[in-house]
Design a protein around this nucleic acid. Sequence first.
DNA 1: TCTTACATGTAAAAGGTTACATGATTAT
DNA 2: ATAATCATGTAACCTTTTACATGTAAGA
Lengths: 188, 188
Amino acid sequence: MPRTSLSLFEFSLLGLVRDREPCCGYDLRKVFADTPMGSFSDSPGSIYPALARLERAKLIRGRVEETSSVRRRKLFRLSAGGLSALKRWLHLPITQADMVRGMPELALRFAFLESVLGRGACVPFLEALEKELALYIPTLRRHLQSAQAANSLSAGLAMEGGIMAYENRLAWVRLALDRLRRMRTRIS
Amino acid sequence: MPRTSLSLFEFSLLGLVRDREPCCGYDLRKVFADTPMGSFSDSPGSIYPALARLERAKLIRGRVEETSSVRRRKLFRLSAGGLSALKRWLHLPITQADMVRGMPELALRFAFLESVLGRGACVPFLEALEKELALYIPTLRRHLQSAQAANSLSAGLAMEGGIMAYENRLAWVRLALDRLRRMRTRIS
DNA sequence: TCTTACATGTAAAAGGTTACATGATTAT
DNA sequence: ATAATCATGTAACCTTTTACATGTAAGA
């Protein structure tokens, strides 16, 4: 078996290739190096082997470009299989487990959502996220209440900061929903 | 060479051992499994080898407990070298690079700060963090401005969410500073 | 009795990190 | 001329993941 699921890093490559088709490994390195994107490694030792894996798995296809002017490079495109793997990932339900692991994966999924599944997918995604966050935050608060007695002030503040981060996420979700809904009414 | 620096995971083990001395591998597994702590792996395959590494590096010391009642277990304590490694890490200056990589490492450092370096270390740490955040956020805003034109709505919202997360961090820093300063005046 | 919690480990496979290696092109 | 940027890769080393392996004690 060629491994069940892809890592976040591999999905981010898939999504980036899809958005920048056709692009080479170096283009992707630049994204990781220059933008506040996910903060994955931009080292050649991580990107080139990962691209080779994705190509072996037939999720992307690479062709060495033949031009005289520019240096030789390998241009990648998403394959049909790659696109459907990306779609499956984006369609995954949002669960409590996603809350515990934090937002990075969900943020990444949202970043690719519109371009891959269309604008219509954004509102349901955010509504599901809103629901899970609204359920999760009170359990975090309870955890803080019960744990903080014994701990230090700074440990308590650190936990408080963690909760604030989730509340902030919820605020963002609501802002995003607002904007998307406003767009919709404007169009219709 | 036994490797220059420890991973976040290893520092978190060091800090937890220090706070719960003496404790065994299973105690640490429970922390990772049951609390919203950093979200490191609680698998035995990551924890026991890591503890063995830390012991080989003489940062912790483990002794097999000899009691009749409880099952055999290995209790760890921080060594003098481990404590000073922890202190060095906590004393590290806060830089722009820390902003780019995100807050998890800084949050972890703050969580251990008071118990290892004393309450006096909290305010300077937060002040440094406040300064770097206040410098970094405007550069993020500029990045959003320049990049968002070409991108999709959802990609723009995702970036906006990233910025909001940093602003939320800054709000937390100010709240924490407030509380700490209030304490100080109350005590003095 | 059966399951859950306690408790510690190892082995194989996969992946990431760091450093090395190479070489063309473009700007200073 | 020299440095920086473009461009792709490999090799050694280390860590993590997943799964296996073992066995006790307590509670339902």
